[in-house]
């Protein structure tokens, strides 16, 4: 890490930005600053070179055309691959999550992904829209995932990744598992400001990105209330 600040890069907001994707960057920055960690947030457009020296990279959601274009430009740029090789953290939602795999489906055809995670995505029988809840991989030590999904894809995990969660409400990858992770890379179908309902996940990303083994807790009263409300809303 070349600078003192925690550097967070939002990749291609001009292509991959729907439904409040900016939220994840805002939440990570706010939670870091609340602990006295100086933060630099950087938005890199698709016509700019992607710096490979940042600590944390964010990928948002997007439609087919922009998604395919983003994959092409990221593969040509190579910055994200170099950053991952250096151990940088990546958090990707929805279309951004699909991008991390070996291939994804857009505009009726399969496109090569970034091959950073061992998974591939195709089209599902119907669009998955609604609350998405699940029990997160116990090795990550996080409370249940709570979010909202809106996607037409289905994702098939290879042996090189683990599911982020087991679905209790919603579809996620395939109705059973949701999202994927390996090393410092996490992808999820919980779209938009996914971290707004999952502050513990936000803090995990911050610990990975800063190397801090511990971060002092913050007052998450309102988030706890929101999580509880959504949990009650989806209870049978």
């Amino acid at each position: 890490m070349s600078t003192e600040d925690l550097r967070i890069v939002w990749i291609y907001p001009d292509l991959l930005s729907t439904y409040g994707d900016r939220g994840n960057m805002l939440i990570l920055a706010a939670r870091a600053r609340a602990r006295g960690i100086p933060v630099e947030t950087i938005e890199i457009r698709s016509d700019q070179a992607l710096p490979d020296s940042a600590d944390l990279y964010l990928l948002g959601g997007g439609e087919d055309g922009p998604q395919a274009l983003a994959a092409q430009r990221l593969n040509a740029d190579g910055g994200l691959h170099r950053a991952v090789a250096r151990g940088s953290v990546v958090f990707a939602v929805c279309a951004g999550y699909q991008l991390l795999g070996t291939s994804f489906f857009a505009k009726g055809a399969a496109y090569p992904g970034l091959s950073l995670l061992d998974l591939q995505s195709d089209r599902g029988p119907a669009r998955a829209v609604g609350e998405l809840h699940g029990v997160i991989d116990p090795r990550l030590g996080l409370p249940p995932l709570s979010g909202f999904e809106n996607h037409g894809g289905r994702t098939h995990l290879g042996p090189g990744v683990s599911p982020l969660a087991q679905v209790t409400t919603g579809i996620g990858n395939d109705g059973t598992s949701e999202g994927a992770w390996r090393g410092n890379l996490i992808g999820t179908y919980s779209h938009g400001p996914a971290l707004s309902r999952n502050p513990a996940l936000a803090d995990l990303l911050l610990r990975w990105a800063t190397g801090a083994g511990y971060l002092p807790p913050l007052d998450d009263t309102w988030t706890d209330r929101l999580r509880h409300e959504r949990q009650v809303a989806v209870a049978p």
Binding site: Y19, G20, R22, F148, P193
Partner: peptide, 9 residues
């Protein structure tokens, strides 16, 4: 709309 994500827009 059932989704409140736009609040972060």
């Amino acid at each position: 709309g059932l989704d409140t994500s736009w609040l972060f827009d």
